[in-house]
């Protein structure tokens, strides 16, 4: 039995199996008591191509629990830290909610919990993983598009998927070394090139608190 310290958790999301159903989103809302308005995970959906060859592409997004996390590097109180098994967590008792980690993360995956006034994010369901369970989103996924496990264990399903498939990560150039891998992830969905800035301005002023 491997000890905790030698584990290296990762998630592989097989986009050939994903059906964009949002079960993972709601699983996380329930498991993590994520309030309305904020999300630890969500499924981005885009359409591309002209009629009649239009296709839809999905992209479930969550914290990458990076090997080289900018959020941890920039957290001034060490409230954000990386566990030995690679899971990046926030200590709710230490976080001062300066939100600098949110500003720093290249993936928009952290949020302030409006009830608790601390920063939260996906931590690969550490409480479930520690109890020998799969993360809630993984367990609920109707098509088993999401697979979670130990990269250091060659026999684990994630290791095998990583070994036998080409995978990509989000924003490789950020050098955060994400631990969420996508099989057959759509390039456009994974970049934010197509973004329409106007879409966000509403949020901009809405979220302004002063």
């Amino acid at each position: 039995m491997a000890t905790l310290a030698t584990k290296r958790y990762a998630m592989v999301i097989d986009m050939r199996r994903c059906i964009g159903c949002h079960a993972c989103t709601v699983a996380c809302k329930a498991e993590m008591a994520v309030p309305l308005e904020v999300n630890a995970t969500w499924v981005k959906i885009i359409e591309k191509g002209p009629y009649p060859s239009t296709r839809r592409f999905y992209l479930p997004r969550l914290c990458n629990n990076c090997t080289n996390p900018i959020c941890v590097r920039n957290c001034p109180t060490q409230a954000s830290y990386k566990r030995d098994d690679g899971i990046v967590v926030v200590d709710p008792h230490r976080c001062i909610c300066c939100k600098y980690c949110i500003a720093s993360c290249p993936y928009d995956v952290r949020y302030v919990n409006p009830f608790k006034n601390i920063v939260e994010k996906c931590y690969f369901c550490q409480h479930r993983v520690d109890a020998g369970l799969e993360p809630a989103c993984v367990e609920s996924c109707p098509t088993r598009a999401m697979v979670f496990g130990d990269r250091n264990d060659d026999k684990s399903e994630v290791s095998q998927l990583l070994a036998s498939n080409a995978t990509t990560v989000l924003k490789k150039e950020m050098e955060t070394e994400p631990n969420v891998f996508y099989i057959a992830g759509d390039e456009t969905a994974m970049s934010n090139d197509e973004k329409n800035i106007n879409y966000w301005t509403e949020g901009t002023f809405f979220q302004l608190r002063l």
């Binding site: 981005k44 959906i45 359409e47 939100k99 500003a103 302004l208």
Partner: peptide
């Protein structure tokens, strides 16, 4: 040709 059908809005961390 790209249409964002669904995504979520994020908080502005620094106000």
């Amino acid at each position: 040709d790209v249409n964002v059908v669904y995504s979520v809005q994020h908080q502005l961390p620094l106000v």
